[in-house]
């Protein structure tokens, strides 16, 4: 019960876990952009290797990672197959022609490229953002990264506070749901049999107490926060300030090296390009 895992955070304690979360958000975005820069076999191979490297650096078991992308696999294959059939290349690239179906070598390349790109984007974002960063770190980092938006009167702090409180209360409310369900079961409520509409109706005795309790908690929490001098983000300081360290610098340099690698391969490597 107490071991509710939020997201897929995997505490392996790697270097990746200790990077500044703001940095990781930026790296994740850059990585995605770079995956769109790739345009030939060599740069795509480098991209693929970089994804493997990310998994190794963050010390997340490959099995765990692969299991989590199983759901995406379908989209990957679907897009790849579409590309095989839809790409129209020049006549000398034509491999198979069978009625209206014509497959070009460029189609095969494109399919492989798209598959690698989707794969790497998923691996990249999940390594940077979910496996190695807790939801609360992400919230903090987003608040700081988006803080320039405050000038435009966008309530960045308030959104971040809402996220924090939601994260804080999820385990409490899950526990409460279980308790209320047990209490209603003890009074003969049946959540597991009957038609769909009957089951939906059986949830009313759980949902009503749950909502009432959530409102009560919200009221009490608001009072407690007021008593602790909370008055929004204005003038607030932070205990744990995110800091840019030498580790983050190494991260930036590695990313820069990777980008130059991709760009150089794009320009100088031979073979088919997208």
């Amino acid at each position: 019960m107490n071991s509710i895992a939020l997201g897929q955070y995997y505490p392996s304690g790697s270097v990746m876990h200790r990077l500044d979360p703001r940095m990781k958000i930026i790296l994740a975005i850059v990585y995605m952009v770079v995956s769109f820069l790739c345009n030939n076999v060599f740069s795509f191979v480098l991209l693929f290797l970089s994804a493997i490297a990310l998994v190794l650096i963050s010390r997340i078991p490959l099995k765990t990672v692969l299991r989590s992308i199983r759901a995406i696999m379908f989209i990957m294959i679907f897009t790849a197959v579409l590309n095989i059939f839809w790409t129209k290349g020049s006549p000398e690239e034509l491999l198979i022609s069978w009625g209206i179906i014509q497959i070009y070598s460029s189609g095969i390349y494109n399919a492989a490229f798209i598959a690698i790109r989707i794969f790497c984007m998923i691996i990249g974002t999940s390594i940077f953002l979910t496996y190695t960063t807790t939801p609360i770190q992400l919230t903090d980092a987003l608040e700081q990264l988006l803080s320039p938006l405050k000038v435009l009167h966008i309530p960045v702090h308030e959104f971040a506070m809402m996220m924090t409180i939601a994260l804080r209360f999820i385990p409490t409310i899950v526990e409460e749901t279980e308790k209320i369900m047990s209490a209603q079961k003890a009074r003969g409520a049946d959540f597991t049999s009957g038609s769909l509409s009957k089951r939906a109706k059986a949830l009313i005795p759980v949902l009503i107490p749950l909502f009432i309790s959530a409102f009560r908690r919200a009221g009490e929490l608001a009072t407690a926060m007021t008593c602790r001098c909370y008055r929004g983000g204005k003038g607030r300081t932070k205990l744990n300030v995110l800091r840019f360290t030498y580790r983050d610098l190494i991260g930036v340099l590695m990313m820069a090296a990777f980008i130059s690698g991709i760009v150089l391969l794009n320009i100088f490597a031979p073979g088919y390009s997208m």
Binding site: I136, R168, R228, C229, R231, R236, K238, L239
Partner: peptide, 16 residues
């Protein structure tokens, strides 16, 4: 309790 880590919760008041 507002925060998901003990010390960050204790810090909530002083931060305010």
């Amino acid at each position: 309790i507002v925060a998901t880590i003990v010390e960050e919760d204790v810090a909530f008041g002083p931060e305010n």
